[in-house]
């Protein structure tokens, strides 16, 4: 009797586990973790959500997305860079890869990563809550100039992150001291939008696609788009140049990266799979529906691009006084 119960228990466990997942040979022969350095609801989160199932289908292995937000992307990017370079931990890296070292936030830069592909690029935006008094970017900047310093606060990403740079660059271009608008660091665009809707900050400088869930739900309003041309997603939203006359524009980008030293064998399998996923109708439709800008750079292009980008950001951030 006793034995029978052990058998029942053993069978029970056997069943529970046995139902979990089938497998195959070569890389990847077990689940792969995709680290996302930003919070839920942001664009990085959304991109990983669409890519993971496509890669799963390609490789017949689970691709588990793990969000590791915090510290202006430091936490997640450090986690990717320091992962064991065996191909079982990869990540969705963002523009911060080339910014963190300049900002003195983390001793890592693009040289600590193995790029697989850069798949998307988006411009910043200007978003307010539905009950905000500001209807245009012009009204907003005038109020910033008029009201006491610190009266209006902005958010969108971590301290010194790309959208913080977007704000500072814009303010400088309008001749406003950047310290007049204190930055509230958030764990990404998603949490910043939530805080905007809850009335925690006056405006958010994240990209419009990142604010889309709230904008379309009628809880937030897009004032401008920090690109050189209007977005297909919101053709009625003016560019910042049209709205206030500034020449400022800012772009972010996202891609798939691994830690430095990933075996060539992994890249050889992963890059074509990413390219296939990227070219698929499903992915292209998703990007268009969400309003995300599509880009494609393979490992070599991405490397070159990041080298240049790294130097550019160093220059701009120094000029803006964000770093010394």
């Amino acid at each position: 009797m006793r034995q029978r119960f052990q058998q029942v228990m053993a069978l029970g466990l056997l069943g529970l586990v046995g139902l979990a997942s089938p497998t195959q040979a070569a890389w990847p022969d077990r689940p792969v973790t995709i680290i996302v350095p930003w919070g839920a609801g942001g664009a990085a989160d959304a991109l990983s959500r669409i890519l993971a199932p496509m890669l799963e289908q390609e490789f017949k292995q689970p691709f588990n997305v793990v969000l590791r937000p915090g510290g202006s992307g430091v936490v997640g990017h450090t986690a990717i860079a320091q992962a064991r370079p065996d191909g079982y931990t990869i990540g969705l890296g963002t523009v911060e890869i080339v910014m963190l070292q300049h900002q003195n936030l983390a001793p890592i830069n693009h040289k600590d990563f193995t790029p697989f592909a850069i798949i998307n690029a988006d411009a910043g935006g200007l978003i307010v809550g539905t009950d905000s008094p500001y209807k245009t970017a012009k009204e907003l900047i005038e109020d910033i100039k008029r009201k006491p310093a610190g009266a209006l606060k902005a958010s969108g990403t971590g301290q010194g992150g790309i959208w913080h740079l977007g704000l500072v660059g814009w303010l400088l271009d309008e001749g406003v001291e950047p310290a007049r608008v204190p930055w509230v660091p958030s764990q990404g665009a998603g949490p910043a939008m939530t805080d905007l809707v809850a009335g925690g900050v006056a405006f958010v400088t994240a990209s419009l696609p990142e604010g889309r869930a709230m904008i379309d739900a009628g809880k937030a309003r897009a004032l401008a788009n920090m690109d050189t041309k209007r977005l297909a997603l919101y053709p009625n939203v003016p560019t910042l140049t049209e709205a206030t006359g500034t020449k400022w524009s800012v772009l972010t980008w996202r891609g798939v990266f691994g830690p430095k030293g990933i075996p060539q064998e992994v890249s050889d399998r992963l890059v074509p799979a990413l390219q296939k996923a990227h070219a698929s109708k499903e992915f292209q439709d998703f990007m268009r529906d969400r309003g995300f800008g599509v880009a494609w750079m393979g490992p070599a292009d991405a490397s070159r691009f990041m080298d240049k980008s790294y130097d550019d950001f160093g220059r701009v951030m120094k000029a803006s006084g964000m770093i010394k």
């Binding site: 466990l13 586990v17 979990a20 997942s21 497998t23």
Partner: peptide, 15 residues
Amino acid sequence: AMVVMTQFLFGNLLR
């Protein structure tokens, strides 16, 4: 029996 079963379930099936 328990160890072989665990190896099979966690090690082989769940990777």
